[in-house]
């Protein structure tokens, strides 16, 4: 009964206040306005009581990562229904470990900060490089070697080892067959590019499955679509701490550079199509910006150290 007779606009406003007051930066003025709103009308107070009631109901839920659990349950259910509807061959494959990691319980073991590039030796002797702002969980046991890329980009040179190895990403699974290759998460996709050997890429959604050879790459999205990529990684030089450009668009290069910097790096569309060639040191991105200014008709403006814009140089 309660709630049925509170006018909908009051509920709407209460929901808006709830969302606003739950934010990270609530001003005194906003709090005052909220109190005024509460006092203005009995419906407002009743609507707010209801907000608190709902909020308390959720606060009493003793589960963390509930969303991951529910999403995992949803995927499992869909898979199950699919299996019933058609081919029973669609048995849930290797889902448990995947779910556990999905549930946010797999901590990332190796990570790099923004601007940092890391090189690591894995328990099997393989070499792992992490590009800027990346995180990976490593789970090796006596039967398998599992990696999970949470964010960013990795490059792997695998060791010889009889145990199967794979890398899980939000979009799918990448399994190398003795090889050197890179995996990157960007734009809600998984990008894979192979230097040596062969790498299998399997979508998590649907049954897309491809095996890539040297020089090949692919892009996998959340709907299970695989699209082949002609080129290699966006910046093949990153493991050496270099940003390589070979007649590259300035816009692309600045996007890439932005991954290594804190704050905003913005550019005027008018400069995006300028081309440049060079090998730039990623350890000092400010110096790269200086180099750009020296070699191209652009102006680099530092509004603050964290807010940099690149615009056409005035004549």
């Amino acid at each position: 009964m309660s709630g049925m007779d509170i006018p909908e606009p009051a509920l709407e406003q209460a929901a808006r206040w709830f969302a606003l007051l739950g934010g990270d930066h609530v001003t005194e003025q906003q709090k005052r306005r909220w109190l005024q709103w509460l006092d203005a009308n009995v419906d407002h107070r009743r609507a707010w009581e209801k907000v608190e009631h709902v909020d308390q109901a959720f606060r009493a839920v003793p589960v963390k990562s509930a969303d991951s659990i529910l999403s995992a349950a949803e995927r499992r259910r869909r898979r199950f229904l699919q299996g019933l509807g058609g081919a029973l061959l669609l048995a849930p494959v290797a889902i448990p470990g995947w779910l556990a990691w999905q549930a946010g319980l797999g901590r990332s073991d190796l990570s790099t900060a923004r601007g940092e590039i890391g090189e690591f030796t894995l328990p099997d002797g393989g070499r792992l490089w992490l590009n800027t702002d990346s995180a990976v969980a490593v789970r090796f046991d006596d039967r398998q070697r599992r990696l999970r890329l949470f964010r960013g980009e990795l490059y792997l040179r695998t060791a010889h080892d009889p145990r199967p190895l794979w890398i899980d990403t939000p979009e799918g699974r990448v399994s190398p067959l003795g090889t050197a290759f890179g995996v990157r998460l960007a734009d809600r996709r998984t990008w894979v590019s192979v230097d040596q050997g062969r790498v299998r890429v399997q979508a998590r959604q649907g049954d897309a499955d491809a095996t890539l050879g040297p020089g090949e790459g692919t892009r996998l999205d959340g709907n299970g679509h695989l699209s082949p990529l002609p080129g290699a990684l966006s910046n093949p030089g990153w493991r050496q701490g270099r940003l390589l450009a070979d007649g590259r668009r300035l816009g692309d290069l600045l996007d890439e550079l932005g991954r290594y910097r804190h704050g905003w790096l913005r550019y005027d569309p008018a400069v995006a199509d300028l081309r440049l060639t060079g090998a730039f040191p990623l350890a000092d991105t400010d110096r790269i910006l200086d180099l750009l200014e020296a070699s191209l008709p652009v102006t680099v403006t530092r509004v603050t150290p964290w807010w940099v814009t690149v615009t056409p140089r005035p004549h």
Partner: peptide, 19 residues
Amino acid sequence: HWRRKAIEQAYQETLLAQP
């Protein structure tokens, strides 16, 4: 029923994955 079952299993797996 399936929904509950799926949630139960997902929760179970979450528990199993605890360090």
